Computed example of a mutant assay.
Amino acid sequence: MNKKELAAHCLTQTGAREDYPFGPDPLVMKVASKMFALISDEGGFDNIALKCEPETAYLLRQQYAAVKPGYHLNKQHWNTVVMDGTVPDEEIRAMIDHSYALVARKLTRAEKQSLGL
Rank of each mutant, 00 (worst) to 15 (best):
A101H: 12
V87L: 03
N2H: 11
A8G: 10
V67N: 03
P88C: 06
L102F: 06
A110T: 15
T80W: 04
V28Q: 11
V31F: 08
S40P: 00
K75Q: 12
A8I: 04
A94T: 11
F45Q: 14
V31Y: 05
D25A: 15
D41K: 09
M35H: 12
I39E: 08
E55K: 13
R93I: 09
G44N: 02
L60K: 10
I96E: 04
A110G: 11
E55L: 15
S114K: 15
V28N: 10
L73G: 03
H77L: 08
A104Q: 09
P24R: 14
P26K: 08
G15E: 06
Y20A: 10
T14G: 02
T12D: 01
M95I: 03
L50H: 00
V67F: 07
G23S: 05
I48Y: 07
K3Y: 00
K4P: 00
N74L: 07
L60D: 12
I92H: 02
L115E: 03
T56A: 15
A57K: 07
G116K: 03
T56V: 15
A49E: 00
G70A: 11
H77D: 03
K4C: 00
G23E: 12
L50A: 03
Y100A: 05
F22I: 03
G23F: 12
R17T: 12
R109H: 13
T56I: 14
G23R: 09
H98C: 01
G44T: 09
K4M: 04
L50V: 12
R105W: 01
S33M: 09
E42A: 11
G116S: 05
L59Q: 15
A8E: 15
V67D: 01
F36G: 02
Y71S: 02
V81M: 10
L102A: 01
I92S: 01
V103N: 04
A49G: 14
H9D: 08
D41F: 01
K75G: 04
F22A: 05
S99D: 11
H72W: 15
K75Y: 10
S33H: 13
M1I: 09
E111M: 06
A65N: 10
A16V: 07
T108F: 02
K4I: 06
A8Y: 01
N79Y: 09
A110N: 13
F45H: 14
P69W: 03
I48E: 03
R93V: 11
M35C: 01
K3W: 01
Q76E: 14
K51F: 05
G116R: 07
P21E: 12
M1K: 03
K4D: 15
K112A: 05
Y58G: 02
G85C: 04
E5S: 12
K30D: 04
L117I: 11
S33L: 13
K30T: 07
Q113A: 15
E91W: 00
P24M: 11
E5K: 12
L117Y: 15
P54E: 09
K106V: 06
R109N: 11
V31L: 08
P54D: 10
L11W: 06
Y20T: 12
Q13D: 00
A37F: 09
M29H: 06
P88W: 08
V81W: 08
A57L: 07
K106G: 10
R109E: 13
Y20R: 14
G23A: 07
Q113C: 00
L59C: 00
L117M: 14
